[in-house]
């Protein structure tokens, strides 16, 4: 009695490629996030340093992490859609 999905899911030939891309993008974002945590732990005084447009590192990095997640989401979707359209054509 395995638990099947609520709706029928078609076979996705692009699944493996998309998963690989997902892992790569996850690692990239994690490194940026880890950088933020690392500065907070090892050089917390850097967080107050002015960086761009008179804003300090804490603000630029914090806002940057939020905006980066949104931008990477759109990029990921673009490539995944492209892969799906190409590989699931037939």
């Amino acid at each position: 009695m395995l638990h099947e999905p609520a709706v029928e899911i078609k076979t996705d030939k692009a699944a493996a490629k998309k998963a690989k891309l997902g892992v790569k993008m996850f690692i990239a974002y994690t490194l940026v996030y880890a950088g933020f945590v690392f500065i907070g732990l090892s050089k917390p005084e850097w967080m107050g340093l002015e960086l761009i447009g008179k804003q300090n590192i804490a603000i630029i990095y914090g806002f940057g992490l939020i905006v980066l997640a949104i931008v990477m989401g759109f990029i990921y979707n673009y490539f995944c859609t492209k892969m799906e359209n190409k590989m699931n054509k037939n």
Binding site: H3, Y29, L65
Partner: peptide, 25 residues
């Protein structure tokens, strides 16, 4: 705010599609 949002990256890149494929309710 930063941490809660960053968590969605894990959901999008690693979990969303495979979980949709596996689960029912």
């Amino acid at each position: 705010s930063i941490g809660y949002l960053a968590g969605w990256v894990v959901a999008l890149f690693l979990v969303a599609e495979p979980l949709k494929k596996l689960g029912k309710y």
